[in-house]
Structures are given as C-alpha cells and as structure tokens.
C-alpha cells in the first residue's frame, strides 16, 4: 500500500464528504426570530447534519479502536517512556513550527524553535529528551491554520473531517499543506522509507490520543451533547491560540504534555 494510494482515497473521502455537506445543510431560522438567527450565526455550523454524521463515524472508530489502543499504551508504557515518545515526535515537527513562527512574524519564537531543535537533537539524544526546556526555552507549537488566522483569514464554517476530527476550511487547508510540506515525510516518501513515515503517523495518533484520554473522557461524560461541546471547545481553543500568536506569545506550550495525566 503506497501513501499515494491512501492520499487519493482520503481525497476521495473528502470530496464525497464535501458533496454530502452541501446536500445536508441545516436550514437557517426565519428572519423574524432575531435571537435564534443570532444564535445560528454564532454557532456557524451550516453543515451540521453532515458534520454530525461524520462525528458519529469518527467517534465509533475512536471508541472501538483508537481509545482502547491509547489505554493499552498508557497501561504498558510508563510516564517516562511516553514523555520520550512525545518529545521525540515533537522534535520531528520543529521544521513545521519554525516555518510557521517565521510566517507569523514571531522572530523570537522562531529562534526558540531553532535553538530547541539544535539542543534537543544533539544533547537530547536525537530529540528523545527535551533538554531545552529546563534550560529556559519552553516548547510551543505553531501550524499553518494558525498562521492563516494570524494573517486575518477567518475560520469559515465548522467542519468535521473524516478520521481527523474538528476543523474548518482554514485549518483543513493548513493541515493539507502540512501533510505535503513536512520535509522529513517528503524525504522518507522519496527514499523508499514510506514505512517510517507511516510508523511516525501511527505513533503520533497513539501518543496524542493518550495525552487527551482524560480530557476527552471528561467532556464525553459531562456534556449533554458531546458534538456541540467539542465544537465549542475546538473553536475557543483555536481562537485563543491565534490570539496568543498575534501578540507573539508561545501559542500552546505543549498542550499534549499539559493535558496528559501522569499516573
């Protein structure tokens, strides 16, 4: 199985989803109900019926495959080991963070990223140990969707992507650029090392899911409507990340490490 084949399949899924989205629009409330109309616009989810269907599909996959796998991973690998995996995978993404720091005009964050990459790749044994943080250079993430937001591009309507989850047109394009623009993946895919790129993708999914186990369990347990709680969380979080990047603060100081419960 080549990654080109899977990409084509994902794109096909995306196109099918786009068609379904257009077909399954939520009807806006009548003009005379001003409050309901304001609420509809504020929720900004005109494709809700289709989004919900994809959300249910994703949640099913998560419930039966990804979440149990993440629980198994947590049970088997101690916190120290999981932190090494998070650090290693995070270090591989530094080129993406660096590019976005620059595109956002955050020179000091770009310098941080560069220093972190050099320190962690060498003294941190190929990125396994985050030695830069105790030295006073904490980590942060930056992505293309966030960069577009900093440039003033609006999020557009809420979207739930198959497999990928909560998004919007702006962030989905950002994710697409990242999947093609990652220099390491590019190298691997062109040097008969696709399996390494696949392993990286799988490890990232597992490690991220483990980090969010407690948070997502809590949201699912306490919300009346899991879908809208997630929609609200995603929107607010992205907005906060973009606002922080606008003022040049580290946008999300390693959220996965923060939310991960260390047991």
């Amino acid at each position: 199985m080549s990654s080109g084949w899977l990409r084509a399949m994902l794109m096909g899924l995306g196109l099918a989803a786009a068609a379904a989205w257009l077909a399954g629009c939520a009807s806006p409330p009548p003009d005379d109900d001003a409050e309901a109309k304001a609420e509809f616009e504020q929720i900004n989810d005109p494709l809700e019926p289709t989004n919900r269907a994809i959300f249910t599909f994703n949640d099913g996959l998560d419930t039966y495959f990804l979440r149990p796998a993440a629980q198994g991973y947590r049970a088997v690998v101690p916190p120290f080991g999981r932190d090494r995996v998070l650090d290693f995978l995070d270090n591989l993404k530094m080129p993406i963070y660096f590019a976005n720091d620059l595109l956002q005009g955050n020179l000091s964050l770009a310098t941080d990223t560069m220093e972190r990459f050099l320190l962690n790749s060498t003294f941190g044994v190929g990125g396994l140990m985050d030695v830069a943080e105790p030295m006073g250079i904490p980590g942060h993430k930056s992505d293309f969707g966030q960069t577009f937001g900093v440039w003033g591009i609006g999020e557009g309507p809420y979207l739930v992507l198959p497999l990928y989850g909560p998004s919007n047109p702006r962030d989905a394009i950002g994710t697409g650029i990242e999947s093609y623009g990652d220099p390491l993946d590019y190298y691997l895919n062109n040097n008969y090392l696709k399996w390494v790129a696949w392993t990286r993708m799988g490890a990232t999914a597992l490690s991220q899911r483990e980090a969010y186990l407690d948070l997502l369990d809590d949201v699912k347990r306490t919300s009346l409507d899991y879908y809208s709680a997630m929609r609200s969380l995603y929107r607010q979080r992205r907005k906060a990340q973009i606002n922080q990047a606008k003022v040049g603060e580290a946008a999300s100081p390693d959220l996965d490490k923060q939310t991960a419960q260390r047991k």
């Binding site: 919300s223 009346l224 609200s232 607010q236």
Partner: peptide, 15 residues
C-alpha cells in the same frame, strides 16, 4: 487555556 467553561456549557445546552 482560553477555553471558557460557561461558553462551552452554553453551546452544549443550547444544542
């Protein structure tokens, strides 16, 4: 981290 509990609840309960 920029996520308000009241706003999340409001959106959840409205839905």
């Amino acid at each position: 981290e920029g996520v308000s509990m009241a706003i999340t609840h409001r959106s959840d309960y409205a839905a």
